[in-house]
Computed example of a mutant assay.
Amino acid sequence: MSDRTAASLRVEALSYGVGDGRHLVDAVDLTAAPGETVGLVGPNGSGKSTALRCVYRALRPTGGTVLVDRRDLAALTPRESARALAAMTQDSSVDLDFTVREVVALGRAPHLRGNQPLSERERDLVTAAMARLDIGHLAHRGILTLSGGERQRVLVARALVQEPKILVLDEPTNHLDIRHQLELLSLLRGSGLTVLVVLHDLNLAAAACDRLAVLSRGRLVASGTPGEVLTAELLREVFGVRAEVVRHPHTGDPQLLYVLPTHP
């Protein structure tokens, strides 16, 4: 989708505190090399979404820095930041009934001035992004008429059209059927971009990510390859579940077989 090179992402001692003295994110360090897909995982309330909001500047960290190719993201203008990093969030929404093509084309906004029309290349980018997300047939539909899964794919296409160096996504597989979950995660990993993604499904995270970073109570408790991180001990201590870790017969990725709490 983009001929721009991917950027490195480095988060150093990132913290976000609230008024009562608690830290929702507490001194988190993580890195993503250019072109690497890093999954951020953890139980509900562990600080994943808050950390992501600090990375894409929806929240101002109370401590630490976010560096893109060793440049402090907070020092960039909003336009510069949007050209470097695109975000797809859980609360992404479109309140007006634009067509799908119009919504996807909004991804070009950081590159345009005023009412400048799209170039031929940019129109081709929009068409290609819709094709890759399997939404070309929806181009002239109003976005408010779409299902949750269709709308999710439109927003991913919009982020890709932005031509960022880094993609930050918070639960991008929400509302998607299994086919589109797998296709989306495969697309992200093969995009050549640096990707930081929050996922709840640990089996999907193991299959789609080069490395995982595990948060618990706002702190980073483990990081490494999926095989290094996803152990029965960590699953019990961090997620409070019993699971057996096996290898996928085709890919060798770790896969988790959960045991219901009622099972002896």
Score class of each variant (00 low, 15 high):
residue 88 M to Y: 05
residue 94 V to N: 06
residue 118 L to W: 00
residue 63 G to E: 00
residue 13 A to S: 03
residue 87 A to T: 10
residue 112 L to T: 06
residue 105 A to S: 09
residue 17 G to Y: 00
residue 111 H to E: 00
residue 66 V to C: 14
residue 118 L to G: 05
residue 107 G to R: 01
residue 78 P to S: 06
residue 31 T to F: 06
residue 21 G to E: 13
residue 60 R to M: 09
residue 36 E to H: 08
residue 58 A to S: 15
residue 106 L to T: 12
residue 137 H to V: 11
residue 42 G to Y: 08
residue 118 L to M: 03
residue 130 M to L: 03
residue 36 E to R: 01
residue 120 E to T: 12
residue 131 A to L: 06
residue 43 P to S: 10
residue 73 L to D: 03
residue 52 L to M: 11
residue 86 A to N: 07
residue 72 D to A: 10
residue 38 V to I: 11
residue 137 H to N: 07
residue 47 G to A: 07
residue 19 G to F: 10
residue 26 D to S: 04
residue 18 V to S: 14
residue 28 V to E: 02
residue 120 E to N: 02
residue 30 L to G: 09
residue 23 H to I: 07
residue 128 A to V: 15
residue 20 D to V: 15
residue 108 R to H: 01
residue 58 A to L: 15
residue 113 R to L: 04
residue 92 S to C: 12
residue 46 S to D: 01
residue 54 C to D: 11
residue 75 A to T: 14
residue 125 L to N: 05
residue 80 E to P: 03
residue 54 C to F: 11
residue 100 V to T: 12
residue 22 R to N: 12
residue 70 R to H: 11
residue 59 L to H: 10
residue 91 D to H: 13
residue 92 S to V: 10
residue 64 G to D: 05
residue 49 S to I: 02
residue 46 S to G: 09
residue 105 A to E: 13
residue 73 L to W: 02
residue 73 L to Y: 04
residue 77 T to N: 02
residue 41 V to H: 05
residue 71 R to Y: 12
residue 120 E to F: 01
residue 96 L to S: 14
residue 34 P to E: 11
residue 114 G to N: 01
residue 23 H to C: 11
residue 13 A to K: 00
residue 22 R to Q: 13
residue 124 D to G: 08
residue 20 D to I: 14
residue 98 F to Y: 15
residue 75 A to N: 11
residue 41 V to R: 00
residue 112 L to R: 04
residue 26 D to T: 04
residue 52 L to C: 12
residue 27 A to E: 02
residue 17 G to V: 07
residue 47 G to T: 02
residue 76 L to V: 05
residue 114 G to C: 03
residue 20 D to L: 13
residue 20 D to C: 14
residue 22 R to G: 14
residue 74 A to G: 10
residue 116 Q to A: 07
residue 39 G to Q: 02
residue 45 G to T: 02
residue 68 V to D: 01
residue 72 D to W: 06
residue 51 A to F: 04
residue 98 F to T: 10
residue 23 H to S: 09
residue 83 R to Y: 13
residue 84 A to M: 15
residue 84 A to W: 09
residue 85 L to M: 15
residue 124 D to C: 07
residue 77 T to I: 01
residue 100 V to P: 15
residue 54 C to R: 10
residue 25 V to Q: 08
residue 71 R to E: 10
residue 29 D to T: 03
residue 56 Y to A: 13
residue 65 T to W: 03
residue 42 G to C: 09
residue 47 G to L: 05
residue 102 E to V: 13
residue 120 E to D: 10
